[in-house]
Design a protein around this nucleic acid. Structure first.
Length: 230
DNA sequence: GCGACAG
DNA sequence: ATCTTGTCGC
């Protein structure tokens, strides 16, 4: 694989345009037995990132274990190019998983991106894995504010009216989250699956647990590697 | 030129 | 993303 650390933004843009043709937006078939959440944590001004993937049983959402990996990253955070900063470390965490989930939820957007290549789509294409993008803020597109109750949602569209994903109120009266298909699933399917992952918090369980895990890892409370004890 | 801008 | 205490609303 290409070394993302030495890329320029123009070069990264070319890679996104190439990968874009490989993204497959199609209804997800089959049952989901395992689902996972991926996230990254780091200290401000540091080049060390702490990546993690938490595996859960589905639909119970009971955690099975987590994969934690530390890595040096030089590519800076540039809106629209998050994948070049976080994907390398996440791939290492992915390789370390003893069981691959049927679907992976990534913290960021899927095709709701200027070039349809958000981090969830990027990771999905590289691993040939069904992925869903779940972000806390909009990156690209237009939408109407969804209703105030849990479960209310509105479409996120591009400048041509094409629906890229949905804006979902995951909890009563909290800021909505942005859900879009990454790879090997579609807009309706990604929303449906994600809704089944929302518990009593704003963020879906896979993402929330992954966020907790990488933070504990960064702070030295959890060890690197694969572990089944929480 | 101006506003927007995942983590 | 991370750093942070109290504070407002349900």
């Amino acid at each position: 694989m290409i070394n993302y650390n030495e890329l320029t933004v123009p070069e990264a843009t070319l890679i996104q345009k190439e990968l874009r043709s490989q993204v497959l937006i199609t209804p997800f078939k089959g049952a989901i037995h395992y689902i996972a959440g991926a996230d990254i944590s780091f200290n401000k001004f540091s080049t060390t990132v702490y990546a993690g993937i938490v595996l859960l049983r589905f639909p119970e959402l009971t955690p099975v274990g987590y994969s934690l990996v530390k890595k040096e990253v030089l590519f800076p955070y540039v809106p629209g190019f998050l994948a070049f900063r976080e994907v390398p470390a996440l791939l290492n965490a992915w390789e370390q998983l003893p069981i691959k989930p049927d679907v992976l939820i990534v913290d960021g957007h899927g095709i709701a991106h200027p070039r349809r290549m958000g981090i969830a789509s990027h990771f999905g294409v590289l691993t040939n894995q069904p992925t869903i993008g779940s972000a806390k803020k909009k990156l690209f597109g237009n939408y109407e504010e969804p209703g105030p109750n849990r479960g209310d949602y509105t479409p996120l569209t591009d400048k041509q009216g094409e629906i890229m994903g949905n804006v979902l109120r995951s909890k009563d009266k909290v800021k909505p989250i942005f859900v879009s298909p990454g790879h090997l699933t579609d807009v309706a399917g990604s929303l449906h699956t994600l809704m089944q992952c929302v518990g009593r918090y704003r963020l879906p369980e896979p993402t929330r647990l992954a966020h907790n895990a990488v933070n504990q890892f960064r702070l030295g409370t959890l060890p690197e590697g694969w572990s089944e004890s929480f």
